[in-house]
């Protein structure tokens, strides 16, 4: 038994090599990250009224339009025919989206772990053409900052993980 513990301790120390310090469990009440899950319904792509820009990411020029990704939310659509006066037309809601590309009249977008092809020939009426599920399966499982406790990701809902919030946790079982 002593040998087993010794081996486990060595393993644990090695695993913690990249962290500033080993986490202690049980952690009790601590600040940490809690997963935010989307629902299956949230994955539906929809054109909605214009939204305030919160966290601009990738920008894309398409015809006379200027498309602005809002991280993890979707894509703002502006008519940019007059660059001095871009006009907001609305918002393509793609929850969990960070990157977009366009070929022809098809918008390709990542959505959480999926990759989606969307017909935007009528930009105000985006239509999902195809979806490849679980293309991405990596960082999504980890909170944004090192050296934090977090609530472990629920395997059954891992594909719906859309973000993290920093909050008070009780005895979280994970740490990075």
């Amino acid at each position: 038994m002593r040998t087993l513990i010794f081996i486990l301790i060595i393993l644990a120390l090695n695993a913690c090599y990249y962290n500033e310090g080993p986490a202690e469990f049980p952690a009790g009440e601590v600040m940490g990250y809690q997963p935010i899950y989307a629902t299956e319904d949230d994955l539906e792509i929809a054109f909605v009224n214009d939204q305030p820009i919160e966290n601009p990411g990738k920008i894309y020029i398409y015809q006379q339009y200027l498309l602005i990704n809002d991280r993890l939310k979707g894509v703002h659509v502006f008519d940019n025919a007059d660059p001095k006066n871009p006009k907001s037309l609305g918002f393509i809601r793609i929850i969990g989206n960070v990157d977009i590309a366009i070929k022809g009249f098809i918008l390709y977008a990542d959505q959480i772990n999926d990759l989606v092809a969307i017909d935007i020939s009528d930009i105000k009426n985006p239509v999902e053409l195809d979806r490849k599920k679980s293309i991405y399966t990596y960082n999504e499982q980890l909170p944004p900052q090192d050296n934090n406790y977090f609530e472990c990701v629920d395997d059954a809902r891992a594909h719906l993980l859309r973000g993290w919030k920093l909050t008070q946790l009780y005895n979280p079982q994970c740490f990075r």
Partner: peptide
């Protein structure tokens, strides 16, 4: 500690690191 802290080395900018 072993299973949860391994991920530290990956520390890459993820899309959720907004």
């Amino acid at each position: 500690i072993t299973i949860c802290s391994c991920s530290g080395e990956e520390s890459s900018i993820g899309p959720l690191n907004s």
